[in-house]
């Protein structure tokens, strides 16, 4: 936990934004489209003037954000831009230096980490039960967990030890653990970052499917712009601790990469990310 924070400080320190960028007013959030189901179970989230510094280093500096219930929002940015910190602040894993975060009480937010973080000494089904806490009897929890496992395509693997699963399967167990309590907000911190390209694509399909089925509000932090555009209704670019770009993605689902509209959006985000030239100074 501390090493995480240290790594964040280190990387953040390397990305001190130029002065002119920091004085820019924050990009106002757009009024959200009405294409979302009005009866969504998702939680509404609003963040205002959120700032976080680690010691002297500012990581986030005045974030304002309104997220509609049931929408899928992707947060992208270079490494160390503060996007993971933003997510951790929203979920209460870190305390903000200033500003406020409004989540309805009992929103039952869940977090999917970059690593699966399964308990190696608990069977898969018991790992999923962790998501249910102390509710109900152990047998009831296990039954619920088995259903959640079936939802992520791991029907019948409940009795396995985590160590025998592949990386993608472990991350699916972690997803089931997050979903089993029917959260109204699901935060995903680069959950597919460590997977190989093929597993990634099938996992993206899975994340999209469970989101469409369950209609929670989803917040996905990723460094992969094409993943963000494939999944999200709205893409937010964080740069230098501020929101540098906030666009709606209005493509029909399921989305296909390589269509002109997809590519145009991808280019727009990448241009904002690298200030005009591909690759540029980010490497």
């Amino acid at each position: 936990m501390f090493t995480d924070a240290l790594a964040m400080i280190e990387t953040a320190a390397r990305f001190v934004p130029p002065d002119d960028l920091r004085r820019d007013p924050p990009v106002p959030f757009e009024v959200l489209g009405d294409h979302l189901a009005p009866q969504s179970r998702g939680a509404r989230l609003s963040v205002s003037k959120l700032a976080k510094r680690f010691g002297e280093t500012p990581v986030l500096d005045g974030i304002d954000l309104n997220i509609a219930p049931g929408s899928f929002v992707a947060i992208v940015g270079k490494s160390g831009c503060g996007k993971s910190t933003l997510l951790r602040l929203i979920l209460g894993l870190e305390t903000p230096t200033s500003g406020r975060i409004d989540l309805p009480a009992g929103a039952a937010a869940r977090f999917v980490f970059q690593e699966p973080r399964l308990l190696p000494w608990a069977k898969v089904v018991d790992n999923v039960s962790v998501g249910l806490g102390r509710t109900g009897s152990r047998a009831a929890r296990r039954a619920e967990a088995a259903r959640a496992l079936a939802d992520v395509g791991l029907d019948g693997r409940g009795d396995a030890w985590p160590s025998v699963l592949s990386g993608g399967q472990k991350q699916r167990v972690a997803l089931a653990r997050a979903l089993v309590s029917r959260p109204r907000l699901l935060a995903l911190d680069e959950p597919l970052g460590a997977l190989d390209a093929l597993t990634r694509i099938s996992m993206q399909g899975l994340v999209e499917r469970v989101w469409r089925d369950q209609r929670f509000t989803a917040l996905l932090v990723t460094h992969d712009v094409s993943e963000a555009i494939a999944l999200a209704d709205r893409v937010i670019l964080v740069d230098g601790g501020r929101i540098a770009l906030d666009i709606d993605v209005d493509l029909p689902r399921p989305r296909r990469r390589g269509t002109p509209a997809f590519a145009a959006l991808e280019k727009r985000v990448l241009d904002a990310l690298f200030g005009g030239f591909e690759g540029g100074d980010a490497i």
């Binding site: 936990m1 501390f2 090493t3 979920l91 894993l93 869940r110 977090f111 980490f113 690593e115 973080r117 308990l119 608990a122 962790v130 998501g131 806490g133 102390r134 653990r177």
Partner: peptide, 21 residues
């Protein structure tokens, strides 16, 4: 420590954290 953080995030109290993690 990542597992401990996971346990806290998933609402484990001190005893559960000790017994399960």
């Amino acid at each position: 420590p990542q597992l401990v953080e996971m346990g806290r995030t998933y609402g484990m109290n001190g005893f559960e954290l000790f017994g399960q993690v």
